[in-house]
């Protein structure tokens, strides 16, 4: 439910004390709480949302979280997921739009044993790969790079990987390598995103919500990006504390690893040399992604960039 904050008018000084009631916002994440959602929890913990006049509830996701459908039917106001998925959903008629990037590059990677390295996606040739059925990158590797490999369905555990030195498996560069190494495996990881295929992770909202509450969306994006910057470059303790309270099975060393990986791969900040910055979405890159999705057969019809994203909330480049 949303209580409009129209009374606030244009902000000159952020003064939350003057706001009569905070606008209630439900934000749907795509998985159980984890450091990959850290920026949002940091924004919540440090009061960045409250400063913007928002009372944000972060809804935990999980298997079959149906993030996009939840937002489309109004069970949540905003959500986050892979940018590709939003493009495909929009093409199928789901009324949602990206409003900002969460990560300039998706954190998906290939986990391998260093004895049998994967330096490039072409190295997957002839190998057995455990990967999420229907993942776009599989089609890209097959159709765009012409690389054939055996695929086995991803079940989210590392048992088979740990047992078989030739095995490779889809992972998050921010996640599985930590646990595999903890169990003594000598593993490496390759980020799937490359110049050919570089999906964003994005924040998105429903078209109806966007039309009715553009101000709220803008505030949410601003506070979330502030949270992300602070989580990754400042002290992540406040966000981690919230995460730990919601999920008591994540060791602190894992959270530290995850944050380090997000920084190392510049997942959130992007590459300044390429003119990228936190939150940025560009029409050119989305256009390129749409064309790629069509080319590999994931999209059966074209979709306009203006239908999948709005750029009005993207901060001006630093």
């Amino acid at each position: 439910m949303v209580i409009s904050v129209a009374g606030c008018g244009r902000k000159t000084e952020s003064a939350p004390a003057l706001t009569p009631a905070l606008a209630k916002i439900r934000f749907q994440t795509d998985w159980f709480p984890e450091p990959e959602h850290g920026g949002y929890y940091q924004a919540l913990a440090k009061g960045y949302y409250a400063t913007e006049g928002l009372d944000v509830e972060i809804l935990p996701g999980g298997p079959n979280a149906q993030v996009m459908s939840s937002v489309a039917v109004g069970r949540a106001d905003l959500g986050m997921t892979n940018g590709d998925d939003v493009i495909v959903a929009v093409a199928r008629g789901v009324p949602i739009k990206m409003v900002a990037a969460e990560m300039q590059r998706d954190a998906q990677g290939i986990l391998f044993h260093t004895a049998h390295p994967v330096r490039d996606l072409r190295d997957l040739k002839g190998r057995t790969v455990m990967a999420g059925s229907g993942s776009t990158w599989l089609e890209v590797v097959r159709k765009k790079l012409g690389v054939e490999f055996n695929q086995v369905p991803l079940v989210g555990d590392l048992a088979r990987f740990m047992n078989n030195p030739g095995f490779v498996q889809q992972c998050f560069v921010t996640n599985e390598p930590f646990f595999a190494r903890q169990r003594g495996a000598d593993v490496g990881v390759l980020l799937i995103a490359s110049d050919t295929y570089e999906p964003y992770r994005v924040m998105f909202t429903g078209n109806e919500f966007l039309a009715r509450h553009p101000d709220v969306v803008g505030k949410f994006v601003r506070a979330s990006l502030r949270g992300w910057a602070d989580y990754l470059t400042g002290d992540p303790a406040p966000g981690n504390k919230l995460l730990a309270a919601r999920r008591n099975d994540l060791p602190p060393e894992f959270m530290a690893y995850s944050i380090k990986a997000m920084n190392e791969y510049k997942l959130v900040s992007g590459d300044p040399a390429k003119g990228e910055f936190t939150g940025q979405l560009t029409a050119a890159r989305l256009e390129k992604q749409i064309r790629l999705l069509q080319e590999v057969g994931v999209l059966d019809k074209a979709v306009a960039v203006s239908d999948v994203a709005t750029f009005e909330f993207i901060p001006k480049g630093q």
């Binding site: 159980f32 935990p60 298997p63 555990d157 740990m162 903890q182 309270a245 919601r246 099975d249």
Partner: peptide, 22 residues
């Protein structure tokens, strides 16, 4: 279909958690 809301998931959630953490 779980989402581990309320700070703790059920046994089905632990299957995920213990599995990914080996």
């Amino acid at each position: 279909a779980g989402n581990a809301s309320g700070g703790t998931g059920g046994l089905g959630f632990l299957v995920y958690s213990y599995n990914t953490q080996i």
